[in-house]
């Protein structure tokens, strides 16, 4: 089974072989990027619009570079500043942009499900760049690629995801992806930051960091999303760092070769100790950023191919 979808809205609908195909393609782009030989003709003549209804410098830059490296014409729209303020609904915005006939829409939105809704109303490929607390598929793919390159495989690993899981779309997409690839997943969080019913996802739950990190191969830290907190999830940042912040002492419970990941941007001294983040023997955080561009190139390449096939079969775009 190969990746034939029109959109990339989440990890949930993907088959493990589709994930592997996306990662294999991304791996090739990662090498080409390092050699400075990215093929500029892959998305040549295609228009990519980045619609960010929520601020994100890093993800938007990553998508922009990915598109430009493959030759797409990239346009960024800061949606808070535009028609949204004038009261236009999401669907009207989508229809307006659709009429301009873009080929790729990259969308981030603060509401879960909003990108799915938008994808129903347009006839170009839509990439979910994060919707509410729901999914952030390219982040999970880049994390998967980083793990695969560091560990030589993406199955039968013991992986801990730690921190603000309740508010994290990164955690959800990673639980989906790592579960589909048959890894052991451990979630570590204070009970107030653990989503309800998550035990039914086939994961192990811990509220103690040292216990949860025991013998894991991968430590995936999450950002403590301060802007999402409407108060009272944790007593204080310093108590959080004491109990859940990743430092050398806590990390010593993981396997000696365990790698440390973080989706960024980091709060040093809140969820992660600065020296761990900067430890080139443990931290793969910079590699994650690098793989982010490669994964987004792969996703857009495959979606553009699928759109071309759809056109060839029907004469018009499906």
């Amino acid at each position: 089974m190969t990746f034939r979808a029109r959109h990339l809205l989440g990890i949930e609908p993907l088959h493990p072989t589709e994930i592997t195909e996306l990662l294999d393609t991304a791996d090739r782009y990662a090498e080409l990027n390092r050699q400075g030989r990215a093929p500029r003709d892959v998305l040549a003549g295609l228009t990519q619009i980045n619609m960010f209804f929520e601020n994100s410098t890093r993800t938007q830059a990553s998508f922009e570079i990915a598109g430009k490296r493959l030759g797409a014409d990239v346009m960024n729209m800061a949606m808070q500043a535009s028609s949204v303020k004038k009261g236009e609904t999401l669907i009207d915005t989508a229809l307006t942009l659709n009429a301009m006939r873009p080929d790729l829409l990259v969308v981030r939105h603060p509401n879960s499900g909003a990108v799915d809704l938008l994808a129903q109303k347009v006839n170009c490929a839509v990439l979910n760049a994060g919707d509410g607390r729901h999914e952030h598929p390219t982040q999970a793919l880049l994390d998967g690629l980083t793990i695969r390159r560091a560990k030589g495989r993406l199955h039968r690993l013991s992986i801990a995801i730690c921190g603000d899981i309740a508010h994290s779309r990164v955690a959800r997409s990673n639980i989906m992806l790592l579960g589909k690839m048959e890894n052991r997943i451990r979630l570590i969080a204070p009970p107030t930051l653990m989503p309800s019913g998550v035990a039914e996802f086939g994961v192990e739950l811990f509220d103690d960091m040292e216990e949860g990190l025991r013998d894991v191969d991968v430590v995936m830290m999450l950002r403590l999303q301060k802007e999402r907190m409407d108060g009272g999830f944790i007593p204080s940042e310093r108590e959080y760092f004491h109990r859940y912040g990743l430092d050398a002492a806590k990390l010593s419970h993981a396997r000696p070769a365990a790698i440390v990941m973080h989706p960024g941007p980091m709060n040093r001294g809140v969820e992660i100790d600065g020296t761990i983040a900067d430890d080139i023997n443990r931290s793969v955080i910079q590699e994650q950023v690098e793989m982010g561009v490669a994964v987004r190139m792969a996703a857009m390449d495959l979606l553009a191919r699928n759109a071309r096939m759809g056109r060839d079969e029907t004469g018009v775009m499906a």
Binding site: E12, G113, G132, R133, H134, E135, R172, S196, G197, F201
Partner: peptide
């Protein structure tokens, strides 16, 4: 709340 809510991020 429950599995479905967490799955959909709602």
């Amino acid at each position: 709340s429950g599995k479905f809510a967490s799955l959909r991020g709602l």
